[in-house]
Amino acid sequence: MSALLAVSGVSKAFGGLQALSDISLQVNAGEIFGLIGPNGAGKTTLFNALTGLYTIDRGEVRLNGTRLDGCKPHQVLKAGLARTFQNIRLFAEMTALENVLVGRHARTHSGVLGAVLRLPATRREEADSRARAMALLERVGIAGHARRLARNLPYGDQRRLEIARALASEPALLALDEPAAGMNPAERAALRDLLLQLQHEGLTLLLIEHDVKLVMGLCDRLAVLDYGIKIAEGTPEVVSRDPSVIAAYLGDEAL
């Protein structure tokens, strides 16, 4: 199998805190790859490092062979890596539909002139974007909320909207930061179905999640972070039997 995402030797420190130490991992095309670990382990930091929000101190990130480290966030997205945020970051004052339309930005081209003159190409592009955006809203199950402001959506729907916005950029790899946080069991089940379906359609997923049941059931492979160090990697069965993983989680609970 070919590695879609190759992370090698990535390190990141905040002042004296080593948030990521020499992290290497590979995500293969078509799989759902889980990233777990106690709170503060560095999972979100790794996402931020991959997506160009943080500059990394050392290491290399490649997506399909192209270097991502050193790229700006919009370049990372354009290269095919889209993400969601742990603490939902929607465009609060825009409607759900507009949020997804913004997600099309990197895949569309019309500029000022096109917009002002409504050139035929712009009109086609806009119509296409709207159709795709509506389809995505449908897909994640919130088409009924298309015209509502993002800030007014229920929490679970906001999470789904963020996924739709990320999908609008037609990514090769979708990175989800705790997408099930705050969802009820029914919503979790729907999310699970959606992710499996996306995988089925050829999308590769990188998933941070605390819900152990969800992670174990969904992921093909997992990596475990603790204090910025990768302490284990492998299939769910292997990882769940790993003594250091058990120690990390028990240690976490003992706190």
Partner: peptide, 23 residues
């Protein structure tokens, strides 16, 4: 338009806008 929406997205949340592909 695409441009206007990108502007508003930046106003709303610049980091999210960048991560959504806006230069």
């Amino acid at each position: 338009s695409r441009i206007g929406r990108a502007w508003v997205a930046i106003r709303e949340d610049e980091t999210a806008a960048a991560a959504t592909g806006i230069n």
